[in-house]
């Protein structure tokens, strides 16, 4: 009799818990993959494809499903790798390729034939122009992914280093750039790193 009572009680509790869980899974249902979204949020969104996937989101999806390592994002560098490893709960793995310094695409406009191929290639719509019109790159939107260089039939796109501006200058870490200043009598200045 006691055994029957225990079985009934536990069975009832299990049933109740099951119903609660079933309701909760409906009520708190989340669309999409939260892990993928969190990984996507730490990626630099250059959409450059250097990881072997066609964009940041596909790479995030692949990482979240565990089919690829956490160290494939080149422009994200060590910081992105550490953040992803932290999210995934896996040991960090060194990023093999060194990220190139930030670049911007420039179109030599007098050579552009207006074929719109680069416009179609740009993953962030940073190139404007129309068929048989000059195209140009919107500097503030360019991520420097280099995807526009390959399709150009006349090779009129240059990848140039992002110009350094005073507003974006920040202090470097102590001991990393002690400058030696040499001034000639004419007031000219030479600065070199010690």
């Amino acid at each position: 009799m006691n055994i029957l009572f225990a079985v009934l009680l536990l069975g009832g509790l299990a049933l109740l818990a099951g119903i609660v869980l079933a309701i909760a899974s409906r009520v708190f249902h989340i669309e999409g993959d939260p892990m993928m979204e969190r990984i996507d949020a730490v990626l630099p969104q250059t959409q450059c494809g250097q990881c072997g996937y066609p964009g940041c989101k596909p790479y995030a999806t692949a990482v979240a499903s565990g089919e690829v390592d956490v160290n494939k994002c080149v422009p994200g560098g060590e910081r992105a790798m550490l953040a992803i490893a932290d999210l995934m709960g896996v040991p960090p793995k060194e990023v093999e390729e060194e990220a190139a310094p930030p670049m911007l695409a420039y179109i030599r406009e007098d050579e552009c034939i207006g074929c719109t191929l680069c416009i179609k290639a740009c993953p962030v719509d940073a190139i404007i122009g129309a068929p048989k019109q000059y195209h140009t790159v919107v500097e503030s939107h360019c991520t420097g992914c280099t995807l526009c260089v390959e399709p150009c039939p006349v090779d009129c796109i240059d990848m140039l280093g992002k110009p350094e501006v005073l507003e974006e200058w920040t202090w470097s870490a102590p001991g990393k750039s002690r400058l030696v200043i040499e001034d000639s009598a004419e007031g000219e200045t030479h600065v070199r790193a010690a």
Partner: peptide, 18 residues
């Protein structure tokens, strides 16, 4: 970092829109 993050967000929005 904050600047890079907001630029990444902008790029993401543009890429998604595309």
């Amino acid at each position: 970092i904050e600047k890079e993050r907001s630029f990444a967000e902008l790029s993401k929005a543009r890429s998604e829109a595309r």
